[in-house]
Amino acid sequence: MRIKKQQESGILEGDLTPMIDMTFQLIAFFMVLINFTQSEQNEKVKLPSSVLAKPAKAPIEFPITLHLTEDATVVVGGQETTIGGIGPFLIREKNVLEIQGKSPDDATVVIRAHRVAATGRVQELIKACQENSFEKFALRAKEDVGNE
């Protein structure tokens, strides 16, 4: 029996359609989920969790975010300082508010303290802000999705 030799010298083409489908689906998935908002977070701070900690419906108008780590270091604007050394930063923030025609009462100090930070340190931080006329505070917590 004579075996017929394959004469086709064409290019082998794989079917790319499923791969492209899948890739576009992945791109769509990541595009939808991507969040470009500047989230004020710090890796050193592990927030306490609470079932009532729901994301605010409206953003805070003038937020000043202070991170307090476990060892009582304050991280503000990417710079580390101590609770005692926060004064100059707060004065600067106060000046910025005054330039905008606002007062420190209009700003909210967002405190992101580590879950095992000493409460006394948090209170010291609050006191340092109070001394610079800030009086609205927001204690930040992570949303606890599990059951209470």
Partner: peptide, 12 residues
């Protein structure tokens, strides 16, 4: 993870 605030007002 989602975060939320507890608002407290504490004038000196």
């Amino acid at each position: 993870s989602q975060e939320g605030d507890f608002n407290i007002k504490m004038p000196l």
